[in-house]
C-alpha cells in the first residue's frame, strides 16, 4: 500500500514538472541564405536542405548544412565557392550548435512572433567560433518557424582567397529561415 502511494506521488511530481512532455521540432528542408556581395556582382546562394532540430523546453538547437548544397544563380561562381574558398570536398558540412537562451518566453500554444536570443558555436571550413545573435520564433497554427540574420567574418573561419575584401565582402551575411513542419 505504501509503495502504491509512493508511486502515485512520484508520477504526480514528474507530471507537474513536465517530465516526458519535452518536444523536439525537426526539419530537413529549412533554408539558409548566404550573401557575400562586395561589389556590383551578386554573390549569394541558398541551401534548401538545412537539417535542423530544437527542443521546446530547453531551447537546445542544431542546424547542419552541406556546403555543396548551396545553389548560386551562376554555376561558375558555385564552382569557385566550393573549390577555391570553402574547400567543400575537405570540409563538406557546416553546423551551428547552441541554445535559444530565452526559450521560456515563447508560448508554443499561442500564435505570435517571439523575439529570441541565440548563443552557440558555428563551425565552417573546419573552424569553430562562438556566435551570439537575435532572431524571431514565429508560432502559426502550432507550427514554429525560426528566422534570423547574422554576420560572420570570412577570415575568422580560415577561408582565404584573392577576392575577399574586394568582390567578396569580408563579412558574409547568413540568414536562417526554418519552418518545422
Amino acid at each position: 500500500m505504501y509503495m502504491k502511494h509512493l508511486f502515485t506521488l512520484l508520477l504526480s511530481i514528474f507530471s507537474l514538472a513536465g517530465f516526458g512532455q519535452q518536444k523536439v521540432f525537426a526539419t530537413k528542408t529549412g533554408q539558409i541564405f548566404f550573401n557575400a556581395t562586395g561589389g556590383i556582382e551578386k554573390i549569394a546562394a541558398v541551401n534548401n536542405q538545412t537539417d535542423s532540430k530544437f527542443v521546446d523546453q530547453t531551447g537546445q538547437m542544431i542546424f547542419a548544412v552541406l556546403i555543396k548544397g548551396f545553389k548560386f544563380e551562376n554555376q561558375l561562381m558555385e564552382d569557385h565557392f566550393n573549390e577555391n574558398y570553402m574547400e567543400s570536398s575537405k570540409f563538406p558540412k557546416a553546423d551551428f550548435k547552441g541554445f535559444i537562451t530565452n526559450i521560456k518566453d515563447v508560448n508554443f500554444s499561442k500564435d505570435g512572433t517571439y523575439p529570441i536570443t541565440v548563443d552557440g558555436n558555428l563551425t565552417i571550413h573546419g573552424v569553430s567560433n562562438k556566435v551570439s545573435t537575435t532572431g524571431t520564433l514565429v508560432i502559426e497554427g502550432g507550427v514554429p518557424e525560426i528566422n534570423g540574420t547574422f554576420k560572420v567574418k570570412i577570415k575568422d573561419y580560415g577561408i582565404s582567397g584573392m577576392y575577399i575584401g574586394d568582390k567578396i565582402a569580408p563579412d558574409a551575411s547568413i540568414t536562417v529561415k526554418c519552418k518545422y513542419l
Partner: peptide, 13 residues
Amino acid sequence: GFCKGFLSDVVIN
C-alpha cells in the same frame, strides 16, 4: 541526381 553528402539522410539535388 547529384550526391551532396550526408546529414540525417543522404542528400541528392
